[in-house]
């Protein structure tokens, strides 16, 4: 019993062996805080009394000094 995408597994097909140059980009786990901002994701425990919009705006205010220009959220509780 679960949601449709739970435990989805994939095959991996390799066309050719190729390496990546470490001087460009970064492995997601090795990103600096600055790099994290552009790929950032937070699972927020929203306080029940406030609107999703307000919670997202508060998170943005907290993270703005570190370079968060925009924070979006997905879904309100009942939809």
């Amino acid at each position: 019993m679960g949601l449709p995408l739970d435990g989805r597994k994939f095959e991996l097909y390799t066309i050719r062996d190729e390496s990546t140059d470490a001087s460009y980009g970064a492995y997601p786990a090795d990103r600096s805080i600055e790099q994290r901002m552009d790929f950032g994701f937070i699972l927020l425990d929203k306080p029940s009394g406030i609107r999703s919009k307000t919670a997202a705006a508060t998170a943005k205010k907290i993270l703005a000094p570190l370079g968060a220009n925009k924070i979006g959220y997905s879904g309100t509780l009942e939809d």
């Binding site: 949601l3 449709p4 995408l5 901002m37 552009d38 790929f39 950032g40 994701f41 937070i42 699972l43 927020l44 425990d45 929203k46 999703s52 919670a55 997202a56 998170a59 993270l63 370079g67 968060a68 220009n69 925009k70 924070i71 979006g72 959220y73 997905s74 879904g75």
Partner: peptide
């Protein structure tokens, strides 16, 4: 509630396809 920062907000719509549990 899932939040995404800066350019990552463009990927938020993908989270709608998998359904929700309450």
């Amino acid at each position: 509630m899932p939040l995404a920062v800066n350019n990552a907000t463009k990927a938020l719509a993908e989270l709608l396809v998998g359904g929700k549990e309450y």
